[in-house]
């Protein structure tokens, strides 16, 4: 299948996904279920990665600011900005694309090859809307929450390990974190996160939904879903940055 027909098929799929849910109460219930299945279960993983990457970012910045003319509070400032602007929204979204994307593609792909999607269709249910729309809504809601949590923990990790290693004292780090804060950076991070959440929910779902064959093809769909959503995240990251920060 060439790239243009895949893109066309993806948009036709989205049109079906965004049709009115057959039953609103079932839809809301499924959204809550997906928030738990995809979002809440990711909290531990996000926390772990954020703490340690925050620490590494601080250590690397400290390593690059060895010049005595540069004030040490810049470590806190640079850590804050790199985490808010890039690490939390983009890196965590890429990591979530792996975790959530493979879950979404393999679940829907397995439902396809075991005829569960056909069973939904036979009941008169719009299977794409029933399966995918709650995931989109859930991720658009929960991913910004995860990103805020990640920002907080990464800065916390940077402060803690910076202080522990003696590279930057608590007072200096906190000075830097509070210095010249631009609230728009948070909006920028949120806009990115929401776009990435949409990609993470829809692209793996698309590949899972159109899986043909058996277990092997479910794996292929899962891989395609994760790889292509990661690529699209990187491209859209550039485009959003170009649009909003230039």
């Amino acid at each position: 299948m060439n790239i243009f027909s895949t893109i066309g098929k993806y948009f036709i799929f989205l049109k079906k996904v965004f049709s009115r849910p057959d039953n609103k109460s079932v839809f809301y219930k499924n959204v809550i279920l997906e928030i738990y299945n995809l979002g809440i279960t990711s909290i531990g993983f996000v926390a772990f990665v954020s703490l340690f990457v925050g620490a590494v970012v601080t250590l690397q910045i400290a390593y690059n600011l060895e010049n005595p003319l540069l004030p040490t509070y810049l470590i806190g400032l640079a850590t804050r900005d790199s985490i808010i602007l890039e690490f939390a929204p983009t890196m965590i979204s890429l990591i979530l694309a792996g975790k959530m994307g493979s879950n979404i593609a393999s679940t829907i792909g397995t439902m396809r090859v075991t005829e569960q999607i056909d069973a939904l269709e036979m009941m008169g249910i719009n299977s794409s809307s029933y399966l995918v729309l709650p995931k989109i809504v859930a991720l658009i809601f929960i991913n910004p929450v995860l990103i805020i949590f990640s920002m907080f923990l990464a800065i916390l990790g940077g402060w803690f390990f910076g202080d522990l290693s003696g590279l930057c004292s608590t007072a200096e780090f906190l000075d830097g974190v509070q210095y010249y804060f631009i609230p728009f950076n948070i909006y920028y991070a949120f806009i990115k996160t929401i776009v990435f959440a949409f990609i993470i929910a829809t692209l793996p779902a698309f590949y899972g939904y159109f899986t043909k064959g058996g277990a092997l093809e479910v794996g292929v769909s899962s891989t395609k879903g994760v790889v292509n959503s990661s690529i699209l995240i990187i491209i859209s990251n550039y485009l959003i940055t170009q649009l909003l920060l230039n």
């Binding site: 439902m111 075991t114 005829e115 569960q116 069973a119 269709e121 036979m122 009941m123 008169g124």
Partner: peptide, 18 residues
Amino acid sequence: KEIRKEIGMVFQGGALFD
């Protein structure tokens, strides 16, 4: 969709929601 509500289908593998 309306016609399908009048149809029952038993799939080869059962197709139960696991």
